[in-house]
Amino acid sequence: MKLAMKRAMRLAAILAVPGVVMAESSHIYRHAEEPIGTIRQVYDGQLFPDLQVNTFRNIDRLFATRTVKAGSSPLPLPESDRRLQNFRFQSRGSTYDLYDFMALNRVAGLLVIKEGEVVFEQYALGNDEHTRWMSMSVVKSITATLVGVAIQDGYIASVDDPLTRYLPQFAGSAYDGVSVRQLLQMASGVAWNETYTDPVSDRRAMLEAQISQQPGAILELMAGLERAAPPGSRWNYSTGETSVVGALVNAATGESVADYLSRKIWGPFGMESDASWWLDAPGGQEIGGSGLSATLRDYARFGLFMLHNGEIDGESILPPGWVQEATAWPTIGGELVDYGYMWWLLDEGAYAAIGIFGQFIYVHPDDNLVVAMWSAQPKPVGKDAVDEYLFLNALAAALR
């Protein structure tokens, strides 16, 4: 009785907040009462397995969020008559199969869509098709794609525009003279240390700014960084720069990033569930590089959106050639880089949105293949027991 009353009170409190929409309209989110850890424990890799899983599917409880509203007509994901069969592959000197990969890499959900039809859908660790799971850096690719949408809409003139045309507060900072393209490629030349577990890294300073929940604290941090190289001369992975991209989308469109994503993609393309997105402060700006929480099927639908070159009902909401440009291997500082407009570039023309702990949206255009995957690896990076890229290559081959 006490638990039922507690849930009812929680639901009443949630529904009393303006703008809050339950992601599952027919019933309360079934994971909502699970105990969770803290955000510092997440980045430190100091959560025991059960608590880690609870936290990953309840990240909306860690910070203020904004809803990304789904549409009323979900894009169907029909099941194929063909099913993915078990397959074997080599990784780091050993042989593995599908079951090994899911168990050893702590895969929490895997959805495979071949030629528009589901050939495999499996949930683990207590998840199901209604579970929302953290994206981490997967959302970088989504944020960057919204720049293309804003260009198509005429809010941003060109990727070659200076960033300060849209964000004048960066004039005089290390970002002065950086183009939108260089920002998207993480080739700004601005100094940044991405080490998640280093308490004095720039990434952890950004996390502390996020924890402070003070409006504009992250952008203030970014504006205070030093220049390490001329713009366009060096590639350096920076989560902070995706928050700058989010601020760019917000400034150019005049809409919150979540609302713009909902209006242009999440609703029209047919995502079936509302998502939530971390904010830098209550009512503030979305964290461009992490904090989207959505269902596995909707992550897969975003992969289909990219596979279809950003077309919705026969009309492209991205500029002509954007997907090809965003997923082409750039040369930065004389070196070929496996990173496009915040998409990782893989073998055989495939590309992927990738997040720490093992989150993926994988797109293989030549094979008409999309894979969405959740994982709960014990540390942010370096704890994939089986090589994920070799697994994805083998999966693609198994379906040919």
Results as ranks from 00 to 15, higher is better:
226 E>K: 15
374 W>T: 14
337 V>H: 01
26 S>C: 10
386 V>N: 08
161 D>Y: 08
264 K>E: 04
269 F>Q: 09
56 F>W: 15
219 L>V: 05
206 M>T: 11
172 G>F: 07
380 P>H: 07
290 S>G: 04
243 S>Q: 10
327 T>N: 05
71 G>F: 03
5 M>G: 14
64 A>C: 08
51 L>A: 06
388 E>P: 09
222 M>R: 09
232 G>Q: 02
100 D>G: 00
223 A>T: 12
20 V>E: 13
124 A>K: 04
312 I>D: 00
311 E>L: 06
1 M>A: 15
186 M>V: 08
383 K>P: 09
135 S>C: 14
213 Q>S: 07
343 W>H: 12
120 F>D: 06
32 A>G: 14
293 S>D: 03
212 S>D: 14
181 R>P: 09
119 V>S: 02
261 L>K: 10
255 E>W: 08
158 S>M: 01
44 D>F: 12
376 A>N: 13
141 S>I: 00
51 L>S: 04
394 A>E: 12
251 A>K: 03
304 L>S: 10
311 E>Y: 12
262 S>Q: 07
183 L>F: 13
143 T>V: 08
34 E>H: 12
311 E>R: 15
397 A>P: 13
319 P>L: 00
140 K>T: 08
131 T>A: 15
163 L>E: 02
255 E>F: 08
67 T>W: 09
105 N>D: 15
73 S>H: 12
82 R>L: 15
260 Y>K: 03
214 Q>K: 11
22 M>T: 13
78 P>L: 15
11 L>C: 05
231 P>C: 01
278 W>G: 03
239 T>R: 05
10 R>W: 10
188 S>T: 12
64 A>Y: 04
25 S>R: 11
399 L>W: 14
294 A>R: 03
344 W>Q: 13
64 A>M: 03
187 A>F: 07
338 D>W: 05
290 S>W: 02
386 V>K: 00
338 D>Y: 05
372 A>S: 13
210 Q>I: 12
212 S>N: 13
215 P>V: 04
161 D>F: 05
157 A>G: 10
19 G>T: 12
181 R>W: 10
163 L>M: 00
7 R>C: 12
350 A>G: 15
271 M>N: 01
183 L>N: 01
130 H>I: 04
19 G>M: 06
154 G>F: 02
10 R>A: 11
109 G>L: 03
221 L>P: 02
69 K>M: 13
358 G>P: 01
141 S>E: 01
224 G>R: 04
19 G>Q: 06
